[in-house]
């Protein structure tokens, strides 16, 4: 965002005299043509602040065009002056914080040239703390675990927990025996005789392990995996 352009535009809006519709339209066209030359898509967040301020100023100017009573309502006048003051104060505040942010970044960058000796705590607060913290002791942990084990059986998707895990070493041995008996084969052929998805998973893991250890070579062509003994 080109901060100087925005500041200058707002300053000129505050200062420029406009007491009729055509002058306000002229101010508006001038502003819009200035904005059209900027890249609004990438800086929309920054420009949103600016447009809010600019529209507030135009609103104040437009209010001045409404029929005025002959007697000046000083309360309104004072309110308008306060609005102007507030808008200008916001503008200054916006500019100040933007520039301070850049100044802080510059100072941090300068200090990062030096490295302190590594200390654990420097990374300790890089992770946001959770919104909820729950302390737990041995008894609470025991109660919670009992509750979890009592409830999981009633939840769909946990039935496999009670089943014995397939023995991977046994699966590798069986797998290699099958490969030996056929020399060159395909994964589809090997799993053809299996009875359950668990066995298929164990076989697949065995295939990966056997490839990793260099016992066999597996190549995937289109939909099938061809296996060759090394």
């Amino acid at each position: 965002m080109e901060i100087n352009f925005l500041i200058q535009s707002l300053e000129s809006l505050l200062i420029k005299y406009s007491n009729n519709k055509s002058q306000i339209e002229e101010n508006l066209h001038e502003l819009i043509s200035g904005l059209e030359q900027k890249n609004l898509d990438s800086e929309i967040e920054g420009f949103a602040d600016f447009i809010l301020l600019a529209s507030s100023l135009f609103e104040m100017k437009a209010k001045r065009l409404l029929p005025q009573d002959e007697e000046i309502d000083w309360i309104d006048e004072v309110q308008i002056m306060k609005d102007k003051d507030l808008a200008f104060a916001r503008l200054l505040q916006f500019k100040a914080f933007s520039e301070i942010g850049i100044a802080l970044a510059s100072r941090i960058k300068k200090n990062e040239r030096f490295l302190n000796s590594f200390k654990y705590y420097q990374t300790g607060n890089l992770f946001p703390k959770p919104d909820i913290e729950y302390s737990i002791d041995n008894n609470k942990f025991f109660e919670t675990s009992v509750e979890v084990f009592r409830r999981y059986k009633t939840i769909q998707g946990f039935q496999h927990i009670d089943k014995d895990l397939p023995d991977l070493q046994k699966a590798i041995d069986t797998f290699l025996y099958e490969v030996d008996s056929r020399i060159n084969t395909s994964f589809e052929e090997l799993i053809d005789k299996l009875n359950s998805t668990e066995e298929a998973v164990a076989f697949f893991l065995a295939l990966l392990e056997a490839v990793r250890w260099g016992f066999i070579k597996a190549e995937q062509e289109s939909n099938s995996i061809n296996i060759k003994k090394q």
Binding site: L52, Q93, F94, F97, S98, G101
Partner: peptide, 27 residues
């Protein structure tokens, strides 16, 4: 740049709520 602007607001106005930061920045 908006994050640096937010950092400067938190630094100078702390402790500060998200609402107040948003009010100051207007977004």
């Amino acid at each position: 740049t908006p994050a640096l602007e937010t950092l400067s607001i938190v630094a100078y106005e702390q402790p500060v709520t998200k609402l107040k930061v948003s009010e100051i920045r207007g977004v």
